[in-house]
Simulated assay, not measured.
Amino acid sequence: MVNNYLPSVGGVEFHVAALAKQLAGLGVRVTVFCLDNDTPSQLESNPRIVRLTCTPAVGGVLAWPWPGTSRQIRRILKEAPVTAISTHTRFFPMSLIGARLARRLGVPCIHTEHGSAAVKGVSPLVGLASKLIDRTVGRLVLRGASRVLCISEGARDFVRNLAGVDGEVFHNAIDTGAFTAGGTGRQNRVVYVGRIVPGKGWELALATAEQLAGDYPQMELHIVGDGTDRTTLAARAAASPLADRVIIHGQQPPARIAELLRGSVFLNPTTLSEGFQTTLLEAVAAGAAVVSTPVGAARYLLAEGADIRLVEAKDPDAWVDNVRAALDSPAEPPAAALVDSFDWKSRAAEYLAVVDSLRPGT
Results as ranks from 00 to 15, higher is better:
Asn46Asp: 14
Asp157Val: 04
Asp307Pro: 07
Gln251Val: 03
Ile223Phe: 02
Glu350Thr: 09
Val58Pro: 01
Ala207Asp: 15
Leu35Ile: 00
Val61Ala: 03
Ile73Asp: 06
Asn188Pro: 05
Thr271Arg: 14
Val355Ile: 11
Phe158Ala: 10
Leu6Pro: 15
Asp244Cys: 00
Ile174Phe: 08
Tyr216His: 14
Ala349Met: 09
Val265Tyr: 10
Val32Glu: 14
Lys131Arg: 14
Ala80Gln: 15
Ser357Pro: 06
Ala325Ser: 14
Pro65Lys: 01
Ser273His: 05
Ser240Ala: 02
Thr180Asp: 11
Leu327Arg: 12
Arg262Glu: 11
Glu168Cys: 11
Thr228Arg: 08
Pro334His: 05
Pro316Ile: 07
Val2Phe: 05
Leu132His: 08
Val12Gly: 03
Asp343Trp: 05
Phe14Cys: 12
Tyr216Asn: 13
Val107Ala: 06
Arg104Ile: 01
Leu261Arg: 11
Asn4Ile: 01
Tyr351Ser: 04
Cys109Ile: 04
Tyr5Phe: 14
Val354Asn: 11
Ala24Phe: 02
Ile247Cys: 04
Gly287Val: 09
Asp134Pro: 05
Val290Tyr: 12
Pro93Ala: 02
Val265Leu: 03
Leu19Phe: 03
Pro241Thr: 04
Asn188Met: 08
Gly287Asp: 11
Ser329Tyr: 01
Thr180Tyr: 05
Gly361Tyr: 04
Ala258Gly: 13
Val61Ser: 02
Ser346Met: 01
Leu242Glu: 06
Ala63Cys: 01
Arg160Trp: 10
Val159Thr: 12
His88Gln: 10
Ala258Met: 07
Gly250Tyr: 06
Ile151Trp: 05
Val165Leu: 08
Asn37Thr: 04
Ala209Lys: 08
Thr87Gly: 05
Thr228Lys: 05
Ala20Arg: 12
Leu162Gly: 13
Asp317Ser: 12
Thr89Ser: 12
Arg156Tyr: 08
Leu358Trp: 03
Leu310Ile: 09
Ala178Gln: 13
Ala57Cys: 02
Glu312Arg: 12
Ala335Asp: 15
Pro269Val: 00
Thr231Gln: 14
Thr136Arg: 09
Val224Gly: 05
Gly98Gln: 06
Glu210Val: 03
Gly225Thr: 01
Phe342Thr: 12
